[in-house]
Design a protein around this nucleic acid. Structure first.
Lengths: 261, 261
DNA sequence: CCCTTTCGTGAACACTGTTCGCAGAACATA
DNA sequence: TATGTTCTGCGAACAGTGTTCACGAAAGGG
């Protein structure tokens, strides 16, 4: 028995959310204007405070949504559609793989999706991974950190699986610093599968490379060396990394290729 | 024969620059306020326009300075003090190496400096590599791109030297996409030394890893797995990458270690 | 001394996020 | 149905932002 009030409230609530997302996409995190959003949904600036308690609340909502949306895309890319919330289920994911595809193929598909999502949603990427907004601090409640953890897991999982399947070599870590012992434990806890320090280090360096390649491309650092777009640069970077991690066979190194393509 | 006017002008000019830098360091790129700067140097907001033509001019100045400052630090880390402008010569660079140090040691020192500079100047890092400021576009003149190129060279050089010295393996690139042929040419032109496509790809992936590790740490993505600071995480990531690029000797893989430390 | 260039100012404009008090509509209870 | 309570929404106001403009004063050159 939804009262008329609740109905109007949820309608306006999502209407505000949509307007906020639209403005984020167009003008970036810095250009988010409460007054403009209020104008779009047809209420006064002050009226907005009945729905979202100021700019910070809107930001945490956008950040949470961003992490979850990215996580959904990553899950779809791996063929794990059942992990995805109903909202984004029909989303088109360019590199999506069937769930029984080759492990390495699912890995590369996930990485490609991390990039393509970021290229298609540059302002969301900046909101999630860029500089913290002036005067904004994530609430201690942890709405955003949970979403963040979900995204991290979606990103890490296929790499872990590729290692477990024996398709990726885990490099040794020489002289690991003392404080990094917590690292493996933390990742073990989150990923719910036992993680050694070298494996954790591998995850770290892979994520760093992936993230760095996307971030540098997005900020135009590759513009002067790839005028025609940096998609191929990403491809080369990814293959360079994966070839370096290819398992050694007896006679020769087998380059890592994604067989299902 | 510096007239009294010019003298006052240059004084106020640098005074404005210092104030702008101070505000950047404290409040970040978004929190840069022309009125606050004007207040600091003791002139009216409108008077600022006699020295810097609006916010954008101030931003290009700050960006240029940032790239050059980072480049200087990288050069000092490699022991190339003569490349450095007089202004920052006496700067303390924690990982600085003598110019005759081991190639790999100079490489790791450069990477560590890339990180430590970013950690110590987070807002400058965001200004240089973060989201583009709302409504700002780099001038076509190229003041910032020249500084950017200088920084790129300072960053790439030691890795190239390590390869030339035979201390780093250059992984093959399987099936390079067609458009990446320009890449090698572009890097050859900038670095003034012949660069093959695999070498260019190696530079790319190294820079991506380096940048990604720093960016992720700076945005707190590592906070939950390294409560005590991420310096050791960076160390592990760097060693993982470099060990993966260690040259193959006849009997065993020799891990890359920096001998002068 | 005069004329030109530079400098600095205060006022104004169109914005921003946020707070406050005051209306009116919707709801729950007597 | 009548009354009291809660929720909505609004206009005004405050302190802040970048930028433009016309105007007076100072400095420099002839």
């Amino acid at each position: 028995m939804a009262g008329r009030r609740e109905q109007l409230r949820t309608e306006l609530l999502t209407s505000v959310r949509d307007a906020a997302r639209a403005h984020l996409r167009q003008d970036g995190p810095g250009g988010l204007s409460l007054r403009a959003i209020a104008r779009d949904v047809g209420i006064s600036p002050a009226g907005l405070y009945r729905y979202y308690d100021g700019r910070d609340a809107l930001l945490t909502m956008l950040i949470t949504d961003g992490y979850l949306d990215l996580a959904d895309h990553l899950f779809v890319a791996q063929g794990l559609d059942d992990e995805v919330s109903d909202l984004d289920r029909a989303h088109h994911v360019p590199h999506a793989m069937p769930p029984d595809a080759d492990v390495v193929a699912r890995l590369t598909a996930t990485w490609r999706t991390y990039r393509s999502w970021s290229i298609e949603h540059p302002n969301e990427f900046h909101l999630l991974f860029g500089e913290p907004i002036q005067g904004y601090a994530a609430p201690a409640g942890g709405e955003t950190v949970a979403a963040n953890a979900r995204m991290s897991m979606a990103l890490m999982r296929p790499a872990v699986e590729a290692v477990e399947a024996g398709r990726l070599r885990v490099p040794r870590v020489t002289d690991p610093p003392a404080s990094t012992s917590v690292l493996a434990e933390a990742i073990t806890e989150v990923s719910e599968s036992p993680t050694s320090l070298p494996l954790a280090a591998l995850m770290l360096s892979c994520w760093s490379t992936l993230h760095g390649a996307v971030a540098l491309e997005l900020n135009g650092q590759f513009a002067w060396m790839a005028p025609g777009g940096a998609a191929d640069l990403f491809e080369v970077t990814m293959r360079t990394v994966l070839d370096g991690l290819a398992v050694d066979t007896d006679d020769a190194r087998r380059p890592v290729r994604d067989e299902a393509r």
